[in-house]
Design a protein around this nucleic acid. Structure first.
Length: 463
DNA sequence: ATCGGCTCGCGCAA
DNA sequence: TGCGCGAAGCCGAT
């Protein structure tokens, strides 16, 4: 059994009943492979002699979702539906709140299996389904390598406190998932659902914010595109990963965060594939695993154990105190959120970062830090800065609204970090400046790289 | 080019 | 209770 019992939680105490199928209500883990929740459902189906139906509720009320996010997600879901079909598993997509759609499909189910999501609304949806499903409901964790509650039962203070806790559990949880063939096909079941072949039509029927355009050319959604990008990263990027983590002019980064955010690819699978890339050298492999597992799962720990994970209040006391002590400090530049969004500041490096974000839905991680640090510096108050950074982050990044978004923005303001030399505005919170970029990387090369990307995307839109 | 200091609080050893 | 140490920092001294 490669689905460890710590991944499996029964979330109500109803029995399995004699329905027509096992329902896997897909929400976070939007993939047909390397999905523990799906594989659990398949095994249950085989035990009970029943087929598996996958249900997905598509809602245009998803917090902060816009056409950039929807397009990417739907491209992935279209591929996932086809891939499931090849395994004889019917996937039904319906408009509606995810919990509502899951409950509708649960009426004929013997058992409801769901995946795990850690954000507030994701948790609430699962509570509603657990409470109202007519049968047993079981939640299977397939988003992180090591289940969050196995690592710790509290909000961890920093990477150094969570790292040893994760590492000692890797041998248990970082193991391949065995995929089992479903004995019974569900493809013949008559269940109404939306047609995913015409995405334009589907997009048109959703009421959404359309002010942020999709970025399908640069980041096509779906598992196939993710794996193509990842294999290219293993071949040409991983070998430079450690040395180039602060070199935004290069592209020696995996670009997996959008795919991980929508569950189109499994962190476990990426981690195991990284092990096999011997040519890249142990220090590069370790540096990537640190990002993929330790830093990412620290973010999951944050949203799991801090109810206020998306607010200024979530910061540690030392950070709030020092930022408060400096709230009335003189600020040389103050910009409105709109000026920032338009990339209209005095700082060409920052404007380039903002352009990368707007036009590609992505940003090199080193620039993500610089970008957010300057928002802290250039808004009137630290609270306003926190809001602006998170707003822009979630609006433009394909991987916005992820646990990593909340932990990443809060890190800028001191979360999971330590105090440093006191200075204006920042207080003891770690400072970054343009001189550092000039000193340590080819920042002009980065600006040129973004200019090229913007030209390319503008050309695509014009044609 | 390289190094120490800055500053906080956790986790562990004692 | 003391001590070591940390996601990427900066800055001034050598």
């Amino acid at each position: 059994m490669t689905i460890q019992s710590a991944r499996i939680t029964y979330i109500n105490d109803r029995p399995e009943i004699d329905g027509d199928y096992i329902l896997y209500w897909m929400q976070q883990s939007q993939r047909a492979q390397w999905n523990h929740a799906l594989e659990f459902a398949v095994r249950k189906g085989n035990e009970k002699g029943q087929p598996v139906v996958v249900g997905f509720g598509l809602t245009d009320r998803y917090p902060e979702a816009n056409s950039r996010h929807f397009r990417f997600m739907l491209e992935g879901l279209r591929e996932t539906q086809k891939a499931l079909g090849r395994r004889g598993i019917l996937m039904i997509l319906r408009f509606g709140a995810p919990d509502r759609v899951a409950l509708d499909l649960s009426r004929r189910a013997s058992l409801v299996v769901c995946d795990r999501g850690y954000l507030r609304h994701q948790h609430q949806w699962r509570e509603t389904v657990a409470l109202n499903a007519p049968c047993a409901a079981v939640r299977v964790e397939s988003d992180v390598v090591v289940p969050v509650e196995m690592v710790s039962n509290k909000a961890e203070y920093a990477a150094r406190t969570i790292r040893p806790r994760i590492k000692r559990l890797l041998d248990t949880f970082r193991v391949p998932l065995i995929h089992v063939r479903p004995h019974h096909s569900s493809m013949g079941l008559q269940l109404p659902g939306e047609d995913l072949s015409d995405l334009e039509d589907l997009m048109g029927r959703l009421q959404m914010d359309r002010s942020v355009p999709p970025v399908s050319r640069l980041f096509p959604g779906g598992t196939r595109a993710a794996m193509k990008r990842f294999r290219s990263f293993l071949a040409t990027g991983l070998g430079q990963y450690d040395a180039h983590s602060n070199q935004p002019q290069t592209d020696h980064i995996s670009g997996m965060s959008p795919y991980l955010h929508f569950g189109q690819v499994s962190a476990l699978r990426l981690s195991l594939l990284t092990d096999e890339a011997h040519h890249a050298g142990p220090e590069n492999r370790a540096a990537f695993q640190e990002q993929l597992i330790v830093r990412r799962e620290l973010a999951f720990n944050h949203v799991r154990f801090r109810k206020d994970y998306d607010t200024y209040e979530t910061l540690p006391d030392w950070a709030k105190n020092t930022l408060h002590a400096h709230r009335d400090d003189f600020r040389e530049y103050i910009y409105t959120p709109e000026q920032m969004e338009a990339g209209e500041t005095h700082d060409l490096y920052w404007n380039a970062a903002m352009a990368e974000m707007r036009h590609t839905g992505f940003m090199h991680n080193h620039m993500r830090m610089y970008w957010a640090k300057k928002i802290l510096e250039w808004r009137k108050t630290p609270e306003a800065a926190f809001k602006t950074a998170l707003w822009l982050n979630n609006r433009y990044f394909l991987d916005g609204r992820d646990p990593n978004s909340y932990a990443g923005v809060a890190w800028t303001f001191g979360l999971h970090d330590r105090a440093w030399k006191e200075r204006p505005v920042f207080g003891k919170v770690r400072y970054m400046n343009a001189a550092g970029l000039e000193r340590k990387c080819d920042i002009r090369g980065y600006v040129r790289k973004v200019e090229r990307q913007v030209e390319k995307t503008a050309g695509i839109r014009a044609s």
